[in-house]
């Protein structure tokens, strides 16, 4: 005797294509193990005065959260993080967009230019930062040496509290992101040429074509890139660490650095987890806001 409801469910189950599921399983398991398990552990740890020897230690509720939220060191790091965000946004984010727009108009040697833009990506990022750090050296760095030919400097770069942040961002201005450029370029090239040609025939200027046709058509890529850029900058660690280790005088200590230092230098894993969770929510909130604004515009 067959039961119709059960049979339907069985059919649905047997109709699932199990092979792709099985192939995906290892990566999903690794993702759960190395992404979600640490994330959930971090949430749990953030409610404890974590004991590294006898984990998890004493349950203290929200005390870790109140502690960092009332700590001026934390807010200084948050401020530094957002100043970096503003600097990176203002000085670097738009550069690959402009480069892609210009590149899309170049007919001759286009492949050569695309290749040349990608070439610097073969250099490891940290190696690039080390080279810049050497160039910034106020005692014998190349940058001051070059600038003096133009009557500029000497500047103290990483030794000047007023310009240290700018000095950290500056390399990204000159060594832009080649991959982003390629993405924008591909998005521009995917716009139907008839539309652009029609606009040209109708007498739309290059400026007008850029604002009314090119940019709106690649907005999806810009939004995706912006979300990746935002989380990348708000969680930046390696280039700042290599350049200044968070100094001088804490002027470049960002939240991610504070999280690492609190955990591994002070062995305070609970509060470190709480701060990480805070940053997770900040980035999530900004991403949602960004998506909402973008959806409204659409």
């Amino acid at each position: 005797m067959s039961i119709p409801g059960v049979n339907n469910r069985m059919t649905r189950i047997t109709n699932i294509r199990w092979m792709p599921v099985l192939f995906l399983l290892p990566s999903v398991l690794c993702y759960l193990l190395f992404k979600y398990y640490p994330l959930l552990s971090m949430v749990r740890v953030s409610f404890f005065r974590y004991s590294i020897v006898n984990p998890p230690g004493e349950f203290i509720g929200l005390a870790n959260y109140t502690e960092f939220l009332t700590s001026s060191t934390f807010w200084q790091a948050v401020s530094n993080t957002f100043v970096f965000f503003a600097l990176y946004l203002g000085l670097t984010f738009w550069i690959p967009i402009v480069q892609a727009l210009l590149l899309s108009d170049i007919r001759k040697a286009n492949a050569f230019f695309r290749f040349m833009y990608q070439l610097p990506t073969i250099m490891p990022a940290v190696a690039g930062v080390l080279v810049w750090k050497w160039m910034y050296n106020p005692d014998f760095g190349l940058l001051n040496y070059w600038l003096h030919f133009f009557g500029l400097g000497p500047y103290m770069w990483l030794n000047d509290l007023n310009i240290t942040k700018l000095a950290i961002v500056l390399p990204a201005v000159f060594a832009g992101n080649g991959i982003s450029l390629l993405l924008y370029y591909s998005a521009i090239k995917s716009i139907p040429t008839e539309i652009l040609e029609a606009a040209k025939v109708d007498g739309a200027s290059p400026w007008r074509r850029m604002w009314t046709m090119l940019l709106p058509n690649i907005r999806f890529i810009i939004v995706i890139q912006f979300i990746a850029f935002m989380s990348g900058v708000l969680l930046a660690y390696d280039n700042i660490y290599v350049m200044t280790q968070g100094g001088p005088a804490g002027s470049t200590t960002v939240v991610s650095m504070l999280v690492v230092n609190t955990a591994f230098q002070q062995s305070r894993f609970g509060i470190s987890g709480a701060m990480s969770l805070f940053m997770f929510f900040v980035i999530a909130l900004l991403t949602v806001l960004q998506n909402k604004i973008s959806a409204e515009k659409d």
Partner: peptide, 15 residues
């Protein structure tokens, strides 16, 4: 635990 707190004024004095 105190190291980062005292390093800050030292660096301010030197810079």
């Amino acid at each position: 635990r105190l190291s980062p707190y005292i390093v800050k004024p030292i660096q301010e004095a030197l810079l």
